[in-house]
Design a protein around this nucleic acid. Sequence first.
DNA 1: AGGTAATTTCAGAAATAACTGAAATGCGAG
DNA 2: CTCGCATTTCAGTTATTTCTGAAATTACCT
Lengths: 189, 189
Amino acid sequence: MQLSSLEQEFVLHFGEMGSRWGINRTVGQIYALLFLSDQPLNAEQIVEKLGFSRSNVSMGLKELQAWNLVRLKHIPDDRRDYFSAPDDLWEIVRTLVAERKKREIDPTLTKLRELEMQTPSNESDVHAHSKISDLRELIELLTGWHDDMNRLETERLVQLLALGSKLQKFAAKAETIVPFKRAPKELQS
Amino acid sequence: MQLSSLEQEFVLHFGEMGSRWGINRTVGQIYALLFLSDQPLNAEQIVEKLGFSRSNVSMGLKELQAWNLVRLKHIPDDRRDYFSAPDDLWEIVRTLVAERKKREIDPTLTKLRELEMQTPSNESDVHAHSKISDLRELIELLTGWHDDMNRLETERLVQLLALGSKLQKFAAKAETIVPFKRAPKELQS
DNA sequence: AGGTAATTTCAGAAATAACTGAAATGCGAG
DNA sequence: CTCGCATTTCAGTTATTTCTGAAATTACCT
């Protein structure tokens, strides 16, 4: 590892954090390295810097590609593959969110809808049905919101986020102008 | 497992999904069961329904308590512990988000700030520094937004989410009233 | 075609994480 | 304090995931 202590600490930290997510340590470290790096890196360079086996790096890069988190680049007269993280941080965030949604939320939504089709077979199924239905509605609200936000340009999105809860005043106003069919009704404990 | 097929499918699905998160299969299944259940359940009942060992259930419940995802209840003249998931789905979502933030984001923020303190030791550290700084800023924006949203009552929050990107119009307006550093005027429309 | 460098695959090894039963601890009632 | 039940802890086992080196594949060059 010929990394400065700054780089090394960053890389190790994201290795750790990665393993708290579904992502494994190796993949986290590779991504952290690519994120910091000024230029694209090839697999051999990653092996040198991180000390993993060549095949492990290959698998890690494959996984990052499956997540759409890296860009493949080429350098003239060099047939090795070079990889880089997108320069735009927001693009990374968008991709992360979109991919997690695809892997974790969408299949759940499908399953919930499927379960809602089933006829309740007993008393407690009736209750279960209604919980499932509430959950589906909530997820739909959230994913709908995500799709909305995703359509915005980054600048506008940042603007909205920065305003934060200040928006609630406008929301109240908007309600009176363009009344909205209300989404899920909440159960109180 | 004396569960209806509806309940069983739901529980198994969340076991699977749980393992894509940091949460393990057992914990996911226990939570799914509590979520569906009309009444609080004690550990022995969970053992019967899911077929895990008593100690595994105990550990799972402990973990759910550490995540603040379950409520401990008691029934008169019964000294066993009964557990339930909050009835209010939004409370569950808020808890999930808050706990993940606490475990995954906050330590990262601390680490990033710490790394920003270090003096760059070479050329590439200068570049690394600026990437780290960008990342820190972005995370601060997002967590700040999260804190804002968290302060809102559920009804308001749902309202805002339902409006989605429609809010951008109001954001532009808000800009003119309470000008914000970040927002160049060419973004208004 | 043959040669070579880059990358991928994959079976087994190593490392982690999950799960269990048995023993220990906690806790209220008598 | 002792008994009896509920819960937790923990050492050992089992299951899962990650990682490796060797072999296979791909792609490009002459």
